[in-house]
Design a binder for these strands. Sequence first.
DNA 1: CTGTTAGCGCGTTCAT
DNA 2: ATGAACGCGCTAACAG
Lengths: 343, 343
Amino acid sequence: MAARRKTGNVTLKDIAQATGFSANTVSRALADKPDISEETKAVIREKASQMGYIANALASFLRSGVSRNIAILVGDISNPHFSVMVKEMQTLLQRRGYNSIIFNTEEKAAVEKQAITTSLSQNVDGIILCPAPGGEENIRFLQMHGKPFVMIGRHFSGEDASFVICDDVHGGYAAARYLLDRGHKDILFLNGPRGISSSAERLEGYRAALEEKGIAYRSELVQTVPVTSRRGTEKMRDILSQRAECTAVLVFNDILAWQVICILGELGRKVPEQCSVVGFDNIKYPYPVHLTSVSSSKTTMAKRSVEILLKKLEGQKGAGEECVVLETDVVEGGTVAVLNEKR
Amino acid sequence: MAARRKTGNVTLKDIAQATGFSANTVSRALADKPDISEETKAVIREKASQMGYIANALASFLRSGVSRNIAILVGDISNPHFSVMVKEMQTLLQRRGYNSIIFNTEEKAAVEKQAITTSLSQNVDGIILCPAPGGEENIRFLQMHGKPFVMIGRHFSGEDASFVICDDVHGGYAAARYLLDRGHKDILFLNGPRGISSSAERLEGYRAALEEKGIAYRSELVQTVPVTSRRGTEKMRDILSQRAECTAVLVFNDILAWQVICILGELGRKVPEQCSVVGFDNIKYPYPVHLTSVSSSKTTMAKRSVEILLKKLEGQKGAGEECVVLETDVVEGGTVAVLNEKR
DNA sequence: CTGTTAGCGCGTTCAT
DNA sequence: ATGAACGCGCTAACAG
């Protein structure tokens, strides 16, 4: 039995004693350095495995300055939009030898700040984050600390930082256009919170589509809805019962869109016959009826963001910032009806 | 500007130099130890915050042996059943000053083993895991290493280990009984993989219910379905098209249950009129139609498992193993019909 | 109340 | 090809 210390684990020193080599040689053998003879490596590896050696990653970091840990910050891991991306990123990072630490920001800048601080204190090598509303300060904080990071799904104008987003202007435009083309004129837009690019840009697209069709923009038809709390449901219920004139609803994300469908049902309005609904994110729910939704390339976002971050970490010095804008479009489901009325 | 080292961060030493105290005094002041004068603490805290000091958690661990990191291992974070629990656990852990590191095991013992090894190498203080099929070996591995852990959702008989599970025997019984009471006799059971307690125990309950009703158990009506891969869908399609005589399907989890509903739709069978479906996990999807499903107290599982783990970590020595079995029952939705046929 | 010493486990550097 | 010395940043243990 090996000597047991504070952590109760087998250390390099234990293997050194057991094999007669120095701790150093053991370290280099296990790291497969070229200056150790194959013979020695074999002996050491054998002994290490036999003793159940597990390297202490934390001590290793302390010396090398590399933790091979990446932090992933998202608004809410229980939202499939995020959990699917997170899972994908984890897989990709794992494959490249990185672990990931996941944080929920609850879409609050203060919580995000806390998550970033913890990430820094855990010495993650880099961060992938979907920034919370009003989190510009946090981005500057990261930049100040020189910690490599990539934003996904949202960005802040003015910051020179890498991001991978969807073309939200076009997304908002395409969704509105899709509804307008099917005869809808009064389109309620239940948008996400202010302070994030996706809300602002989708609205921009929505307005552009209206304008193009010569339909007046009515600000009372655009409302902001909380994305994480239960209060969002209440607010949507209020709005929907007051806006019965709307023949279609465009909703910030698919979860909320489904909630809208439920609320409409409670209000006695059948979807899509009496009201059409379009969401964002195109989450592949296993449900007989598919939601008509604006696509977001979750797999691509995950892939590109990991690539960009790792290039920053491993690439030659100062790989510049990369900004990726992915295409997006309406994916047809069964929640939109064509209006025939001639008036 | 403070001196910058390998990690580029402000260290205790920097604060020591800036304030004229020793690194040690700074450490103890920031840790709010009682043997430092309030005055000194104030000075040091002020300076630390001004310099943007962020403690190096890894170095801290190396010395103290406490990382305040917990690993959470689940089959698939993109499954709401897990992501909801994970989120809840994260919140609770955070509140107690712990970070969490999440791993997907893909329901494979080998991947789980890897996740455990990484967790150990990251020196997490403890682990909460939903063990993968055939992962008994991994549990023994954890026990061998003396790493505190709690299993959730599943357990292995014979291991003296803490776990928090649902009463799956009763869950299987209640679900079958619910269908039998509504006139269903040919109940297809699409069960989870062998090698986990939930599959085995639900089957046990299913059989007990049949027996109680004097209905013969037909092994061809019980099939195992992969829970993570896309192959599960294919397999279910095959089975469902061959078992048209069944008037009801009991499915291992809600995701698969919804897939079953979709497949039945493709096969021209309407739910619940032509076939009833019951799932497990009672996931709160925001759909207009609710799935009839066997409840699982996700919040309670999360809460209890965190409690038990933290008691092990912080409590007086040798807090014994705790086994919690939570009640479960059928939650009515709209996917089960009452059979009227008199034959 | 505060400073000094020491060492957690590892990897880098230099010497042999 | 291998070993010895050193230090990453922090805190436990002891001095005073």
